[in-house]
Amino acid sequence: MSVVDLRGAEDFAAHPYPYYAKLRAEGPVHQVRTDDLERVWMIVGYEEARAALADQRFSKDWRTTETLTASSNPINANMLELDPPHHTRLRKLVAREFTARRIEALRPRVEQITGELLDAMVPAGRADLIDAFAFPLPMTVICELIGVPDIDRDAFRRMSNAIVTPVSAEAESAAVHAMGAYLDELIEDKRCSPGDDLLSALIRARVEDGDGLSRDELTGMAFLLLVAGHETTVNLISNGVRALLDHPGQLALLRARPELIDGAVEEMLRYDGPVATATFRFTREPVTIGSVVIPRGEAVLVALGSGDRDAGRYPDPDTFDITRQAQGHLAFGHGIHFCLGAPLARMEGRIAVQALLERCPGLERDPEGGEPDWLPGLLLRGVRRLPVRW
């Protein structure tokens, strides 16, 4: 086991996979130093990562450890940061809204939004694909699903980015408090003017069912659904398009055989997925991984992006191949915290990429677009801008 100091790795955000490969060659788990933490454990092997994601010896509740502290703001009381039975109860309340049948019913609206965005974008001949397409598509879909179509999306995006890709502890703390206040007001407005939407349904459950959601739980749930409902899909679309543009042969193959889109999206998720590491876990007891013992009460990161490049799972893992059988990847996690919105993200990704290629047959990087501006931090994988032309 090695101790890796990522504080000096200036190119890690742009090129994490060589670092992961070196770590995997040395063992499945390592101590890592980051800008925020003097010590955190990182699991990098596929089998070990998959096992850890489903291992109940790891807690998701930061309140169970002294290793990491977080704000008591209600947005930190969301189900992603809770263990059973609290997690089980909260997930059950929203799971029925994300069944395959309900997600499929959204397809016509997703296709309509996609078409409208492309109608506005295509005549210009060039665009920042994230601002014009990859961000507004999932943001519109999740806002309509939850019931907040008039949300101030620019303000929400700034707050969301400051929380999930923080540039400083101070900026993150300010964004957490601003987001909590914003969502609290949003929930109060929805309580006064309910509709036929997910947030209204959750509020009714809180009122009519004694075991429903408290006000803080509603705030945490709204935060998780809104942020997770768009941030990851933005990066799924933009990372997927970047991968295609970087591999012209695969782009040509997908154009020639559009029926490969389902497998192509799975390979996009495996090859350069939107989430680099799962959110923190904490050891309830000493946990042995390989020959390494992680002591009780330690913070642990599961490197999803590393696991999905493990040659023990995927032959020639650094090759982008849309015909690969990429099923079983870790991009949406595994176990009880497997991403609830995975079916929606997959559908949005398939519709978006296919429609984009159909409407923009000459799609390529904009040579005047400048160098990529990579998202900071260890959580999300992606760029802030993706200048393209067609």
Rank of each mutant, 00 (worst) to 15 (best):
R204E: 14
C360E: 04
G249R: 14
A171M: 11
I151C: 15
A201N: 10
F282Y: 15
R91F: 07
G362W: 05
E358F: 08
A201P: 02
L6E: 03
V122S: 01
G362E: 14
A205Y: 10
T279Q: 13
D5G: 13
L106W: 12
L344V: 08
T219C: 15
D262W: 08
L226R: 02
L53W: 02
I294C: 05
L137V: 04
E285P: 08
F338E: 09
T67A: 15
E267N: 05
G333R: 00
V148W: 00
E111M: 11
Y17T: 10
L357A: 02
S173V: 11
A174M: 13
A252R: 14
L183W: 02
P28R: 04
T140D: 05
E259H: 11
M179L: 10
R24Q: 12
F320N: 04
A134I: 03
V148L: 08
P286E: 10
P258M: 09
H86D: 15
G290N: 06
A178F: 07
E81N: 14
A352F: 00
T288K: 15
S238V: 01
L378E: 01
G27L: 06
P194E: 08
K92F: 07
E48H: 11
R215W: 13
G212R: 02
M221G: 02
T165R: 11
G377V: 06
Q112L: 13
L378N: 03
E170H: 13
L236K: 00
R107E: 12
M42T: 03
Y17L: 11
H87F: 06
D55C: 13
A355P: 02
P136S: 11
V287T: 05
E48G: 03
V275P: 01
D366V: 05
P166F: 07
F280V: 05
P361A: 09
L6K: 04
D272H: 10
R153A: 09
E188L: 12
D366Y: 06
